[in-house]
Nucleic acid binder design. Sequence first.
DNA 1: AGTACGATTCGATGGACGTCAAAGAATGAG
DNA 2: CTCATTCTTTGACGTCCATCGAATCGTACT
Lengths: 105, 105
Amino acid sequence: MPRTLPEPTAESFDLTVILNALADPGRRALMTALYRATEPIDCAVLVEKADLGLSNPTVSHHYRVLREAGLTRTVAEGRKRIVRVRRDDMEARFPGLLPAVLGGP
Amino acid sequence: MPRTLPEPTAESFDLTVILNALADPGRRALMTALYRATEPIDCAVLVEKADLGLSNPTVSHHYRVLREAGLTRTVAEGRKRIVRVRRDDMEARFPGLLPAVLGGP
DNA sequence: AGTACGATTCGATGGACGTCAAAGAATGAG
DNA sequence: CTCATTCTTTGACGTCCATCGAATCGTACT
């Protein structure tokens, strides 16, 4: 039974929070890898792709920051966490921001 | 005799530093006001436009952070500081970033 | 039930950041 | 030359943040 973890509405996005989230190299590495993936992806798989040298609690913390900034949507499916970029909401509120920061269209 | 204050080359721009600079509301207010101005502008005039409730040392600190991130170019002319956005360098390194963050084209 | 596994939370620690008051240059006026 | 004005630097203070180890929680598998 999939549960969507708490996240802000697109209307309540705060640019300061978003830029702070993207300002951290680890989080941006996660976002870049996630941004390239066209499909929702398992958090554990993504963190391997990003290849950060960070402990599990720290990675979990970064996922939370990204989600609470509105950059990602996380769905809990059993033990796994499936994460994706909220492209449409981000494009609606801050057009062109993600492409500019993460590269590519 | 105008002196250009120290600044990084466009090649050495660091996205982490740039996003950190833009993540602060006060600095972003300065940048937004500066971005709208098509001409180089006196720092003191700009800070009035932005209307931050900050002390002089703090404003000076923010100007320095923006400059050292590569976002602005500051030229000292006598007692004045003339500042402008490094549009071309920013567009060359991170196309679309400033428009996306500061709004408008 | 019990165990194993993945993710989160808690507590602590070290460092970075924003802020200001006071001291320190630099420049223009008298 | 001296003084006054304006910006910058320094030092200090409080706060926030990234990070990790250990403990906790929830789920799946036997």
